[in-house]
Amino acid sequence: MNHDAYDDDYIRSILNGVKSIAMVGASPVNVRPSYFAFKYLAQRGYDMIPVNPGHVGKALMGKPFVASLADIDRPIDMIDIFRNSSHIMPVVEEALRLSPPPKVIWMQLGARDDAAAEKAEAAGLKVVMNRCPKIEYGRLSSEISWMGVNSRTLSSKRAPVPTQGMRLSLNRTSFGGGQTAASDRAAKNRTETT
């Protein structure tokens, strides 16, 4: 699996397929990216579970915080890790001990741990690193285009008017080879040349 660039189809199949998402490192502080990614995904219909031992007893959008993945009372499809790269491995190890295990490990924008990814993939899980599910959902649905972002998708169908709790279609035609952004290619080139 090439984690420098993902096909849109790969990301699309994950976001279309998962229903429940546990967010490790979710923050109740409403200016933190984890807070508004959580809120966005909840508004788009995902069953969101906030995981953060520091906030047990509180709730995020009406969902009570749990201390750890083991404390979740139902199977989880995806674990979205909002932690620095150095804290990824223990979360992945904990995820792999769950029964049933999750289908997807997603590491947030800026987070990447190739060894943890390898471990999860060896156990049959799909892995995404250094991406934000909110951004990817907004991009593939073209909702993000309202900000001038290149969604790298086309559609000749009438756009939906997004409302609360509404799932948007992610099945627009992708272009640009369906690869992820130039940044990854460039970062790679940069490492190679300097």
């Binding site: 096909d7 849109d8 189809d9 073209s142 285009s145 290149n150 969604s151 086309l154 559609s155 000749s156 169908k157 009438r158 756009a159 939906p160 008017v161 035609t173 992708s174 272009f175 640009g176 080879g177 369906g178």
Partner: peptide, 20 residues
């Protein structure tokens, strides 16, 4: 499968979608 549209297709379509 993702197909890569050509430059002329993007010049006509990219960013635009029938009004919601």
């Amino acid at each position: 499968t993702d197909r890569v549209p050509g430059f002329s297709t993007l010049a006509v379509h990219a960013g635009a979608q029938p009004d919601p």
